[in-house]
């Protein structure tokens, strides 16, 4: 089976990353932001996998597993923060949580 050209995979990864970034920037709901971050992480992971398959190296998969682990940890911390945020401010809107304003 002819391998997909690497460019396609990278383009998809870039697209996903851009979508994720856009999501982070435009969504105000913190849950959606977390989801968008997941998308960005996965986009990065996809890029690794594509690159790994292009050069037939296992490193790409290794990195992806690492990213999965980091993402899991990040989500657990992130959800805990979301809970705290909701408990304190009764909202999931991140713009409301601007106490660190200069």
């Amino acid at each position: 089976m002819p391998a997909l050209p690497m460019e396609h995979g990278l383009l998809l990864a870039a697209l996903l990353f851009a979508l994720g970034l856009l999501g982070v920037l435009v969504r105000r709901n913190v849950i959606f932001i977390l989801m968008s971050i997941e998308i960005m992480l996965n986009a990065a992971g996809l890029a690794f996998v594509v690159a790994g398959s292009r050069w037939s190296q296992a490193d790409g998969q290794v990195m992806f597993i690492l990213i999965l682990a980091v993402a899991a940890a990040e989500v657990s911390v992130g959800l805990a923060l979301v809970l705290q945020l909701y408990r304190r401010l009764q909202t999931l809107d991140v713009d409301v949580a601007s106490k660190m304003r200069g």
Partner: peptide, 18 residues
């Protein structure tokens, strides 16, 4: 002036990073 960039809004910071 610099303090004004410190809005406390996560998305604003994110934009900055991006």
């Amino acid at each position: 002036l610099l303090a004004r960039t410190e809005t406390g809004k996560v998305r604003w910071y994110m934009t900055g990073i991006a």
